[in-house]
Every structure is written in C-alpha cells, then in structure tokens.
Write a protein that binds this DNA or RNA. Structure first.
Length: 422
RNA sequence: GUGGGUGUAGCUCAGGUGGUUAGAGCGUCUGGUUGUGGCCCAGAAGGUCGUGGGUUCAAGUCCCAUCACUCACCCCA
C-alpha cells in the first residue's frame, strides 16, 4: 500500500510552526481591537455565483483558479478564493447596515486557489484583512492603510514599501479606458498575445504587463491618476495629504492595478524585498460598487487583505522570533507503583495551579525520565519515591542550577508559586 | 499550462571515470552506580539509494520513461 500524501500546494503546520501562527494571530487580533474592528466569520464555501459576480468573470481567479464542485443537490459551490465578496454577502444578508451606518469588520481565514505552487504561493493559504463598510471618506482609506501598517509594526516587520494609486470610479474608468485604448491601438499588434486579448475587456491590465516590449511601450501611456474627474481627484489628494500628516511614507505607482475587478478609486499594495517573486504581503483598496454588484444596496467600502504565510516568511527572514516562549515548569518523576499513583494526583494539582507540568507516559527508567525533563527544558523536576513518601517531601531538582532540595508536601504550592515568579 | 533545479537514514548532506556487507554529522534509543539530566565515552536501531524499465558479468553511479518536491513565468496575498 502506498502512503497517502497531502494535496499539492497545501501544508501541515507542525507544532513548532503553529506556535508562531498563534503568536502572529494574537498580535493581529490585538491591533484589530485597538482600531475597533470586529471579526466576522463566514463559511468556507459559497455559491459559485457570488465569486463570479463579485470578483469578475474575466479575472484569473474566477476563470481558472477556483475549486468549484457540485454538491449532491446539484448546487454549484466554490471554496472561497478571497474574503471580500463573502464579507459583503454576509453584511448584506444579515443587514448589518441597518444596525449601524458604519461597520468595521476583520477576518482571518483559509482560502483556496488552484494555482501552481511556488515560494509564497499555496493552494490553501491564509489571509487576514479588514473592511470598512459604509464610508466613502478618504479617512476610511487612510485608517485601513494605517491599520495594516500598525499590525506589521506590532509584529516587528521592517523595510516595507507602500505603493498607492487611484483607479477612479465608474465614470472615470469609462473615460480613461477610451483614452488608453486610443494610445495603444496604433501599436496593438506589437503587444504580447495576453495584452491583445485584454485590449477590449480590460485594457488597464495591459499597464501591469511585465513583458519587456509591452512595458517599454507603456512608458508614455496616459496615467489614470492624471485623468480623474474632480471628485475622484479630490479623494486621491485628500488620501495623500492625510498619509503625509500621519507620517506614513508612500510611493505612487500610476500603473498599479489590482487583479480583482471590483476596485474603485484607491488601490494600494505593501511589499517586502525579503520575499521572492511573490513579494506582496498586502493588497487592498476601495470598492464602492461591489455591494450593488451583489444585489444589495449601494455601500461604499474600503479594505485590505494580507497573506499570513508570506508574513511568516518575512518575519523569519528578518529573524523575528514568534515562537512560544512558554517553558515547561514541572516534570514529575515517580519511582515505584505507589509513588506513580500518588504522582497522578499531584500532577493534576500542579496543573490546576496554572503551571505547565508533565509526567512520563512511556514507563521509562529514572535516567531516561531525567533526560526527557532536560530535553523539554523543564525548570523543576519533582522526584517522588518511597523515601519521599516516607519523609512526606518531594526531592526537587532545580534544573538550571543543578541543585536538589527537599520540599515538604504541604509547602510545595508555596514553593512553586514563589519560584515561578522569578 | 510552460520552463529550470532537485530527489541517498527522522533532519542536513558525502558517495571522481559503474565493481566487495551504501557512509558522516545532528537527532533517537541503551549503557558507563543500586533512584537522577546537561558534557564526555561506548554501543544500537534506522535506508525498497523517488518509482518503473533498459544497457552491463556488475548501477546509488550510464540511458529512457514516470512521479514527487522546488523555483520561475503567469497571477496574486
């Protein structure tokens, strides 16, 4: 029989690694709370239509990366490939807008995309993110960006780069699309096949093309930020102004276009050079039209999404220690059957004090148990045998000092309480 | 989907031009006192050399195929 293996592009997060995840998640939640965002959890799967409509039929995600299947009732379902559409769906379905005009939501969840795995890209991966629903003010955009950076700061990440752009609203884009097409058209046959395909449906993506000839020709392309109507222009200006007031450094990239169709006005990306080709740890922007697209009432919104695996890669590269610093306090070594039974009771009591405590479960020799205690970096080893039972006192070995002292049974709690404070 | 790289013990890796029982370090286990860790010493366990063919008297080593992993394109977090 061949051994079963995990699915390509997925990973087992082993104990040593998972302690880092827990630390990271806790830091994220702490900052989210300070910024007054609340968590919303949605199912891992949704109707396929939610993503088809929300993300856009022509995006790579919808066109070729979704895990879509039919359930036994013949319904088309999809494992969620991103979180914004589900959040908006839940927001509309549960009428959160009726309770409050403004909702600040965050999430942390596994997502699924059937891409070819590489560094920083998995088929099941994890994102956290935040969405501010109900405000069209630039302050909301700024808060979202500031929030993402505050989280990275809390984790201790360094040397991150923030890049921003504005892709305008619906009206701006119709106008700009024409301007751009007029610019490209004379040379269209020189562009790569992908770009030629994009020309009609989504010409803005051509600006993002990494093909050398394409990007050279794009050098003089008209920039959308320079062709915005007054309303969007004002929004973008306010955004930049407020970022400056907060002392948040940013770069403008007039060709930054996010891959999902729903973005309007503000788009941004945060990258790290510590990563490989997949260097974005955060992407986001404003998406004022999505709620309507999903059949709900118009709701201005802005948010970001950030990849947890990539964050962990950056942290690792920058030698940021996220491992659990907790230490095994007590290892109980029992000698003889009577002591063994007795030790079970003590172990439970010590654990109930709130201390991390352990006992040999492999019927090992005393020597092997001591080795085990040492390997687990225990602070104290409590020895319990016939002598100790008679004396009504533990022999306590202080592993760091190598000394051994007798502690009467009725003084043990006091001893451990005092010592564990040190 | 398309390219490049890699596949030898739990982990990290050695194994010129094919040739006796496939090695090292780390880790694991046991012992070096009858009830005691770390250091040191001694020993042990653990490998279908990714898989399947082929060439050869002989293949971990050469050829072909295949699979897996990995990096990159693409795309994105």
């Amino acid at each position: 029989m061949n051994q079963l293996r995990r699915i390509k592009g997925t990973q087992d997060i082993l104990p040593e690694e998972s302690s880092k995840w827990i630390t990271l998640e806790n830091k994220i939640r702490t900052v989210m709370k300070k910024y007054n965002f609340s968590e919303l959890r949605t199912p891992v799967f949704e109707q396929t239509e939610l993503f088809a409509r929300g993300i856009g039929q022509l995006t790579d995600i919808v066109a070729k990366e979704m895990y879509t299947f039919q359930d036994r009732g013949k319904k088309q379902l999809t494992l969620k490939p991103e979180m914004t559409a589900p959040i908006i769906r839940a927001y509309l379905e549960n009428k959160l807008y009726a309770q409050s005009q403004l909702n600040k939501i965050y999430y942390m969840a596994p997502l699924f995309r059937q891409e070819n795995p590489q560094a920083g890209r998995l088929r099941q991966f994890h994102q956290f993110g935040a969405e501010t629903l109900g405000s069209s003010a630039a302050e909301a955009d700024v808060e979202i960006i500031d929030l993402a950076l505050a989280i990275y700061d809390a984790i201790g990440l360094k040397d991150l780069k923030l890049v921003i752009n504005s892709v305008g609203d619906a009206e701006d884009r119709v106008r700009y699309k024409k301007i751009l097409q007029d610019f490209i058209k004379p040379n269209l046959n020189k562009y790569c096949p992908d770009c030629q395909r994009r020309f009609d449906e989504n010409p803005m993506r051509i600006l993002d093309c990494k093909n050398e000839t394409c990007s050279t020709m794009n050098k003089n392309a008209p920039k959308i930020a320079e062709h915005l109507l007054p309303k969007s222009k004002a929004h973008y200006k306010t955004l930049k102004n407020q970022l400056t007031i907060l002392g948040i450094p940013f770069k403008e990239n007039p060709y930054l276009v996010r891959g999902l169709d729903y973005y309007t006005r503000t788009v941004f990306e945060i990258t790290s050079d510590a990563l490989g080709a997949q260097n974005a740890i955060c992407g986001g922007g404003r998406y004022d039209l999505l709620a309507e697209e999903l059949g709900g009432q118009p709701t201005p919104a802005v948010g970001f999404a950030s990849g947890i695996e990539r964050l962990l890669m950056v942290a690792d590269k920058q030698n940021i220690n996220l491992s659990d610093s907790g230490r095994l306090q007590v290892f109980l070594v029992a000698m003889g059957d009577k002591a063994k039974n007795e030790s079970l009771v003590w172990l439970k009591k010590i654990r109930n004090m709130g201390l991390q405590a352990e006992l040999d479960l492999l019927s090992r020799s005393i020597k092997a148990q001591m080795r085990e205690a040492n390997r687990q970096n225990a602070r104290f080893v409590l020895l319990l045998g016939d002598d100790e039972l008679q004396k009504k006192a533990f022999s306590v070995k202080l592993m760091d000092q190598g000394e051994q002292v007798d502690i009467p049974f009725d003084e043990l709690f006091e001893f451990l309480t005092d010592k564990s404070k040190e």
